[in-house]
């Protein structure tokens, strides 16, 4: 064997290790759950009969499933723009701060590195009705009426979105800051000399050059919001996604079907739908947003 051939073989041997790992712990379970979605398997039963599209038909007839699907879309539609705009604004502002920048960065990253369960419970208490809830006490101090927040049909989902945005903000800010620091100063200076306002240079230079970062964040944040679970599980009574399913996302629906009702077949079908939803939205975003910008 020639040295070059040996090198190739060696490379493939090393590549094989993560590949095998991925096949065993990622792709195999994924394909298996595709198979399960066509069966009537119940977690603690040995029976796994093929039932065709029965589970999917059942899902689309299930009001709770449709509500969870709709809620999941709401989480993305409310959450992603909010977290992107806010984090871009804060990052651009932080980028101008020269003193104690590390401190502000730390401040914004704190929620992100705090365990999500802890964050959820803290916010659950912040949102409490009087006399316990901090937020309601502030509202009432300013003469407003107390709000039901998590026990309201309309406010509970936005309340959970706010918590999630607060958590994800730190991560997005850090990524945006890194992006901002790669934009060459010359562009900004040149624009300044040409008489561009800071607003113009932000929208004409900074924003377009940050496009790859924005695409990355929109895609990853969309996936995060599509897979929302922990917050809802911990912020609603008995992890129910209530009141009356008003906050229940798809992942919680899947969890309840799989591990409370043990209906693994149905849960797998819902997982397949979630998978297709994530894939569809991601591809669409890449198609629409991904534009190369060069100066």
């Amino acid at each position: 064997m020639k040295i070059s051939q040996k090198r190739i073989v060696t490379a493939y041997v090393f590549l094989a290790i993560p590949l095998v790992f991925y096949i065993v712990v990622r792709f195999y379970p994924m394909i298996y759950s595709f198979w399960l979605s066509f069966t009537n398997w119940r977690l603690i039963s040995p029976k796994k009969d093929f039932v065709g599209f029965d589970n999917f038909v059942k899902l689309f007839k299930d009001k709770v499933f449709m509500t969870s699907l709709w809620n999941t879309i709401k989480y993305v539609v409310y959450g992603v723009p909010l977290v992107i705009v806010l984090s871009l604004f804060l990052a651009a502002t932080l980028n101008k701060v020269r003193h104690l920048q590390w401190f502000y960065r730390l401040l914004y990253v704190m929620p992100y590195i705090t365990p999500l369960v802890v964050v959820s419970w803290v916010w659950r208490w912040i949102y409490q009705r009087p006399p316990a809830g901090v937020l309601n006490n502030i509202l009432m101090a300013f003469g407003f009426d107390a709000q039901p927040f998590l026990s309201s049909m309309n406010q509970s989902l936005p309340a959970i979105v706010v918590t999630t945005v607060w958590v994800n903000l730190g991560y997005c800010i850090i990524i945006y800051l890194a992006g901002l620091q790669t934009i060459p100063q010359e562009y900004q200076e040149a624009a300044k000399i040409d008489g561009a306002t800071s607003r113009q240079s932000f929208f004409k230079i900074t924003l377009p050059l940050l496009n790859p970062i924005t695409v990355f964040l929109v895609v990853t944040q969309s996936i995060t919001f599509l897979r929302i679970f922990t917050q809802v599980y911990n912020m609603t009574d008995q992890g129910s996604g209530g009141p009356l399913n008003a906050t229940k996302p798809l992942v919680l629906y899947i969890y309840q079907k799989a591990f409370r009702s043990f209906d693994m077949g149905l849960a797998s079908s819902a997982t397949v739908i979630l998978f297709m939803l994530i894939m569809g939205i991601t591809l669409l975003q890449l198609l629409v947003l991904n534009k190369r910008v060069q100066y």
Binding site: P148, S151, D237, S240, G242, P243, L244
Partner: peptide, 20 residues
Amino acid sequence: VDESGQRQVLMDAVDKVWIQ
């Protein structure tokens, strides 16, 4: 037959009355 499901039914019934 499904403890958490059957509990949820009554939780929801109470919510329907006092929230909705």
